[in-house]
Write a protein that binds this DNA or RNA. Structure first.
Length: 490
RNA sequence: GGUCGCGUGGCCGAGUGGCUUAGGCACUGGUCUGCAAAACCAGUUACAGCGGUUCGAAUCCGCUCGCGACCUCCA
């Protein structure tokens, strides 16, 4: 079996590494999903799209991937409150709903947006609330191994003790002594032996409504535990890939490593992959800063920074035009540019299905395809891949315009470039133009016919009127040698 | 304060030692068109500043300036 080699930037080593699965051709991949207490925003889209492309790439290459992406529906503690309070519970109180109603609402919202963005469903989408028993078991294991202690019904991870035999900070590059000096004094931490310790189980306050029984108290699991528990349950104690946003690097992922190591005695992950943030005016777009734009607002054009609505496919393309490890600056004009570029690409893909082959080829199509593979294999360099796709579009259009020629074999290769890289791996399907309609198509044919007749009769007043009205309906007509074609742009 | 990262042309955004014309958007000129649209061809604007290493640096090193991320929930 020969699978093309790819490289991945591993946060653990801070280098690009050749990807070698632990158990070829199987690949286990875990990605931190959303905490479902609010509408999904552009940041969620980026993480989901980046790892969707990785999932698609690995599948395309022939790997058998089990992709696990969790739903956090238990909520995390908020330390800015006087007492620790569950994020979801807090939101529930504000909206006078059951916590699980909130969870349902925002899970549905997330799924809906992800579907619009053409993101493939993960193999397993486990929920924290459905794995309380496993989490309790893991806490017990960590306690049995001596790396956790109980105080007043809450259980804390003993970071200092763990660090004496392990390296706490190996992922994020932190040194425990420095962390201890710099850790802020936060309220509600008096139970901990040390400020750097973190909760594995938290006893619920009376007003706390999301809670479960445990050997220590009626309460809820700690911030980082679910990912350790669910990843090991579905992927094993040592698996290939763990992904998530860069903001989760510390403390979340660092703590995951510590928990798994303390419970199972194994470093859990071979390749850690982190996507960078989306910025707005140079600043991170985030829930806490309140400068986020939800996906619904983007799709509806319903935000003060937006001049219009944007197709989900445009959002996807916009995100893939930047490398996943760099920040991506959001703006209306950048999105407008992406919309135009995507349209050019999609038109090219359609055009490539229509062009006619001849005996010879003027461009090296095989080389172009190899360069596409090289780009996506090099730490998923989607912007470079896209630049090659535009070269393929340029060739396509030149052949159509009669400036270049292409052989039958190369034409097949050209179409396979679009099929493999644009559709299969990047997931940039053209869902708008493809859907035929039993009523609209004959109607449009009639209208186009009438316009053609008036043009033939030099009745340009009529033909232009048809074109102008159609244009107002976002239908673009193009008069080409072989007749008039039309496209509908949302 | 600690740790880490970034600064590319009008905008977005790749590249990281020697011609990359990266690519997209915008703009200008040309071809095509009844006029358009689309497309093709051509053109324009660049590597924050200073110093160093090198035959050669946007790319390596140092300093300066500016910006950001993490250190508290966040994709």
């Amino acid at each position: 079996m020969s699978i093309p080699e790819i490289t991945i930037y591993n946060t653990l080593s801070r280098k690009k590494e050749i990807f070698e699965p632990l158990n070829t051709p199987n690949v286990g991949m875990y990605v931190c999903g959303p905490t479902v207490y609010g509408d999904p925003h552009l940041g969620h889209a980026r993480a989901a799209i980046v790892f969707d492309v990785l999932f698609r790439l690995l599948t395309y290459l022939g790997y058998k991937v089990r992709y696990v992406r969790n739903i956090t529906d238990v909520g995390h503690l908020e330390n800015d409150a006087d007492e620790g309070e569950d994020k979801i519970a807090k939101k529930a109180r504000l909206e006078q709903l059951e916590p699980m109603e909130i969870v349902q609402k925002y899970t549905d919202s997330y799924h809906h947006s992800m579907d619009l963005l053409n993101i493939r469903h993960p193999s397993i989408e486990p929920r924290a609330s459905g794995h309380i028993i496993e989490q309790i078991k893991m806490i017990q294991d960590i306690m049995d191994n001596g790396f956790a202690y109980e105080v007043n019904g809450s259980v804390y991870f003993d970071v200092v003790k763990y660090n004496s035999s392990n390296n706490y900070g190996k992922l994020s590059g932190r040194v425990l002594d420095e962390l201890m000096e710099n850790t802020r004094d936060l309220a509600g931490q008096e139970e901990k032996n040390n400020g750097v310790d973190f909760a594995l189980w938290k006893k619920a306050q009376p007003e706390h409504i999301m809670k479960w029984p445990s050997p220590w108290s009626t309460g809820f699991p700690g911030w980082h535990l679910e990912c350790s528990t669910m990843s090991s349950k579905y992927l094993g104690d040592y698996f290939d890939i763990h992904g998530g946003g860069m903001d989760l690097l510390f403390p979340h992922h660092e703590c995951e490593i510590a928990q798994s190591q303390a419970a199972n005695g194994k470093d859990p992950v071979k390749y850690w992959i982190h996507n960078n943030m989306i910025t707005i005016d140079g600043q991170k777009m985030s829930k806490s800063l309140g400068n986020f734009i939800t996906l619904d607002e983007l799709f509806a054009g319903n935000h003060k920074l937006l001049s219009q609505a944007f197709n989900p496919n445009t959002i996807r393309f916009f995100i893939l035009q930047a490398h996943y490890r760099g920040t991506l600056d959001f703006s209306d004009t950048a999105l407008l540019g992406a919309e135009k570029g995507l349209s050019k690409l999609l038109n090219g893909i359609e055009q490539a299905k229509k062009i006619v082959a001849t005996d010879s080829t003027t461009s090296d199509i095989s080389k172009l395809k190899a360069e596409c593979m090289k780009a996506i294999s090099d730490d998923f360099n989607t912007p470079v891949l896209i630049s090659h796709l535009f070269e393929a579009v340029r060739i396509t259009n030149s052949v159509y315009a009669g400036e270049e020629t292409i052989s039958q074999g190369d034409l097949k290769t050209l179409n396979s470039i679009f099929e493999d890289f644009a559709t299969e791996i990047l997931g940039l399907i053209d869902d708008q133009n493809k859907q035929g309609n039993n009523l609209i198509d004959p109607l449009m044919n009639l209208i186009i016919d009438i316009r053609q007749e008036s043009r033939a009769n030099k009745d340009f007043a009529t033909s232009d009127k048809i074109r102008d009205v159609l244009s107002e309906l976002n239908i673009t007509t193009k008069d080409e040698d072989g007749g008039t074609t039309w496209t509908y742009d949302g």
